[in-house]
């Protein structure tokens, strides 16, 4: 589903963020991406969502090389990837409903269809009662769940999460990981960046460990 072939990413100011990175994630696979901050986790996820382009190497998503994707096709690529961020990236002046509806609204879907899907997504994350609320009135965990509802509302085959539980207490974090496992069960490909070592060591999934831009371990807990 996601394949990196000798990918390098160099920033003019910071130097090389990723060095000769190669790995493959099968369709429906769930993997953790770990390493110290600055190890290149966020950069890796950004490359998949085409928020950045690699300096060298090939990235293939869903059988298509991203290098061949023209700029105007990027929005359609992003619609097939649900992205979840540590700082939620919600619109503060819009309701929970509007935030979750955004990925559908930009595709030109009729609003009745949008309503159905948004409620289904909010139901999945347990926030159906909050659709009229403003994100700022919600707790951190609730806001993160709004972000997750937004990521899944378009039913993308791939979900990327960048430190999704970084600011949450362990109990709330567990709820979030339960959600991810549920998506995994229905066949979504997930890649979750986290430095929560303890948690991922307790879960039986693949772990990609980055160190200073290099992939230093690709292991599996059984």
């Amino acid at each position: 589903m996601i394949r990196f072939e000798h990918v390098n990413k160099r920033y003019p100011a910071r130097g090389e963020a990723l060095k000769d990175l190669s790995f493959e994630l099968a369709a429906g696979e769930m993997a953790f991406l770990t390493g110290h901050s600055g190890a290149g986790k966020s950069t890796l996820l950004k490359l998949i969502g085409l928020l950045e382009r690699p300096s060298r190497g090939q990235i293939i998503v869903d059988g298509r090389s991203l290098a061949d994707l023209p700029r105007r096709r990027i929005p359609y690529h992003r619609r097939r990837i649900g992205m979840i961020f540590q700082d939620h990236q919600l619109l503060r002046d819009r309701s929970v409903y509007d935030n979750v509806a955004l990925p559908l609204a930009v595709t030109g879907m009729p609003s009745r269809e949008i309503g159905r899907r948004v409620r289904a997504a909010l139901d999945q994350v347990g926030l159906l009662a909050f659709e009229r609320a403003q994100p700022v009135s919600l707790s951190g965990g609730e806001q993160q769940r709004v972000g997750i509802a937004r990521a899944i509302v378009g039913r993308p085959p791939i979900i990327l999460a960048d430190e999704p539980t970084g600011n949450l207490d362990p109990e709330l974090a567990s709820e979030i990981y339960d959600l991810f496992e549920r998506f995994h069960e229905v066949g979504v490909t997930l890649m979750i960046a986290t430095h929560d070592q303890e948690r991922i060591s307790r879960m039986a999934y693949r772990i990609l460990r980055l160190h200073q831009g290099r992939l230093i371990a690709d292991s599996r807990n059984w």
């Binding site: 969502g49 928020l51 105007r72 929005p75 359609y76 690529h77 992003r78 619609r79 992205m83 990236q89 919600l90 619109l91 955004l102 990925p103 930009v106 595709t107 030109g108 937004r150 378009g154």
Partner: peptide, 16 residues
């Protein structure tokens, strides 16, 4: 700016 960036993240076209 934030709103536009977020719209871009979820797959809005420039035209939209």
């Amino acid at each position: 700016r934030d709103e536009i960036r977020i719209m871009g993240l979820v797959g809005a076209t420039a035209r939209f």
